[in-house]
């Protein structure tokens, strides 16, 4: 078979496999009514993407001061903050601001103590029932993995936080519900959590709703895939190594086959 034919055949295969894969991943979840989040500019996208540590630190502050009143972050321990550039003492101090129940002690009693770096982030509610009771029956999602659990990821988080609006005339809001075109069904049980100046940043960044939303989305992207920088760094080494190996193996193959062709 001549090379042109072979190439066009390979291209055809690639195209159809590609289409098949697209078919597998484009599943709109009732998107017709819900608005699609706009793509934001994130530093972490692409094979060269990196964490924006300053933004993540600010996002941590937003989470701790605002969101943690309702949302748990159950995959994250205080010690994980070491990865964000906090030193051991700072992490200890952050943890110590929270109380955890421990025990039983030698008398068989449970007791309260300050959280330690090895503890997971303290949960805002004792259990789901308590969380629902305080939130008009709705459950505030655990945020650790949300950036991976929604197709639009951090774009979605940003969109929800900045998307609160007055409902259009034809929308009848349920009891205790708020209008948000990005949340499925366009009604969300969470009241707008961020307002200009909700937190006070120490690095001079203006605490606009957009800035805080972007920071907390950066933070939640980190909580969802804290391994990202390691992964991409190792990935480059592995892929470059494999490219060289492939080239060498190709040369070997040519050499071995030279006597046959």
């Amino acid at each position: 078979m001549d090379i042109g034919k072979r190439l066009s055949r390979a291209a055809a295969i690639a195209v159809v496999t590609g289409l098949a894969l697209l078919g597998g991943t484009t599943t709109d979840v009732g998107a017709s009514e819900t608005e699609h989040p706009e793509a934001q500019d994130w530093k972490f996208t692409g094979p060269f993407g990196k964490f924006d540590i300053a933004a993540i630190q600010r996002g941590l502050q937003v989470y701790l001061e605002v969101c943690s009143a309702c949302h748990s972050l159950n995959q994250i321990a205080y010690r994980n903050l070491l990865d964000l550039g906090f030193n051991a003492d700072e992490v200890k101090a952050i943890a110590a601001e929270y109380e955890v129940t421990d025990g039983p002690d030698d008398n068989g009693d449970m007791f309260e103590r300050p959280a330690r770096p090895s503890d997971k982030f303290v949960l805002p509610f004792a259990n789901e029932k308590a969380a629902r009771a305080s939130n008009n029956g709705a459950f505030p999602t655990d945020l650790s993995l949300l950036a991976k659990a929604h197709p639009a990821g951090p774009d979605y988080i940003f969109a929800v936080l900045t998307g609160f609006d007055d409902p259009p005339d034809d929308v009848e809001l349920g009891d205790g519900m708020n209008y948000n075109p990005y949340f499925s069904g366009k009604q969300i049980a969470m009241a707008q959590p961020l307002f200009e100046g909700s937190v006070e940043y120490s690095d001079g960044t203006k605490a606009t709703v957009e800035n805080m939303a972007r920071d907390v989305a950066n933070f939640l992207h980190w909580t969802a895939e804290p391994e990202m920088e390691d992964r991409k760094r190792i990935g480059w080494k592995v892929v470059l190594f494999l490219l060289v190996l492939s080239a060498l193996l190709y040369a070997t193959k040519r050499k071995v086959w030279s006597s046959v062709h």
Partner: peptide, 25 residues
């Protein structure tokens, strides 16, 4: 020799997905 070359190309594609787009599929 031929299979080793093809396999290396395949693993390269695989690694690209594992390290750069692990949740794509």
């Amino acid at each position: 020799a031929k299979d080793s070359f093809g396999l290396a190309v395949w693993i390269t594609l695989f690694a690209a997905v594992v390290f750069f787009a692990p949740n794509f599929f």
